[in-house]
């Protein structure tokens, strides 16, 4: 994907002390809201369950007042330490965050420690001032969508993006197979060309016919010339054929493994 640093996006780049750069997608307040609501609901359930257990036990022992006191201590612990303890022992995640696939990390991309986890959750009370307007405004003004608790602890919340292999599509069209067989074997697509082909084949079925040809033309025309194909060659078919030759044929062992994709999948 062509891009430049001036583009508005929720991605940020982090460069480690070892000079390795990698990208994160930071989670803003709206991405974090469902996780917060899940955790809030879970805390309410845990509180009532705990209170019932305490009341039952102390009621059986004949000291129900102690059960109520224990329930208040339980509520205090849930209110102040639920997030901090989960984030400490679950590597920056609470149940809500895990379900929403987000994680708290330090601003340089490392796992957070216990102190950061507990402090950022205690400082949530400051962010909650004005019905979370303080946290909202803070997230709006910072590059990494940090609320005050995050700013104080040097943390941020990122979206976990699992890397998986793009499924190879088998096009099954005889015309594609025929054209793929006629493509010169000396031509091996680069990684970026392979990604472009995979993106096109993955999405082409969702485009109207006219739009499909319009998009295929940008890459299909220079490819057609480079491969010395006739002007009648259908550009949509050409891209599909090159995809088939690059990915499907390679996987089925029909051609020698020269392509850079032979040993590795494409990241989606």
């Amino acid at each position: 994907m062509p891009s430049n640093g001036d583009q508005i996006d929720t991605r940020i780049e982090i460069v480690t002390p070892e000079n390795i750069a990698f990208e994160y997608r930071v989670a803003g307040p709206f991405r974090r809201l469902p996780a917060y609501l899940i955790d809030l609901g879970l805390r309410v359930v845990l509180f009532w369950l705990g209170l019932m257990v305490f009341m039952l036990i102390t009621g059986l022992l004949g000291v129900p007042g102690v059960g109520l006191g224990a329930g208040l201590v339980w509520a205090f612990l849930l209110l102040w330490f639920y997030g901090g303890l989960f984030e400490t022992f679950w590597n920056g995640q609470t149940p809500g965050k895990r379900m929403m696939q987000i994680r708290v990390v330090t601003v340089d991309g490392r796992p957070i420690n216990g102190l950061q986890a507990i402090l950022r959750n205690i400082l949530r009370t400051v962010d909650a001032i004005g019905f979370y307007q303080v946290g909202f405004v803070s997230a709006l003004l910072t590059e990494r969508f940090q609320r005050l608790g995050d700013l104080a602890c040097g943390t941020m919340v990122v979206i976990e993006e699992p890397q998986w292999l793009r499924e190879v599509l088998r096009l099954g069209d005889p015309e594609v197979t025929d054209l793929a067989a006629r493509l010169p074997y000396r031509f091996q697509p680069s990684l970026s060309l392979g990604r472009a082909l995979a993106a096109y084949v993955d999405r082409r079925a969702t485009f109207a016919w006219g739009r499909r040809l319009e998009i295929a033309r940008y890459l299909g025309e220079p490819l057609r010339e480079k491969l010395n194909l006739t002007a009648e060659t259908n550009l949509d078919l050409l891209l599909c054929a090159l995809y088939q030759r690059t990915f499907v044929a390679e996987r089925e062992g029909e051609t020698p493994g020269q392509s850079p994709f032979a040993a590795q999948g494409l990241e989606k």
């Binding site: 994907m1 062509p2 970026s192 060309l193 990604r195 472009a196 993106a199 096109y200 999405r203 969702t206 485009f207 739009r211 319009e214 998009i215 295929a216 940008y218 890459l219 025309e221 220079p222 490819l223 010339e225 480079k226």
Partner: peptide, 23 residues
């Protein structure tokens, strides 16, 4: 973007331009 495949169009354009530069 989803209906018209803008992100695919941008990839296609970039790769097309790269091939043209090579030629």
């Amino acid at each position: 973007i989803r209906r018209e495949g803008w992100e695919v169009e941008l990839l296609m354009r970039a790769e097309g331009a790269r091939l043209n530069r090579q030629r």
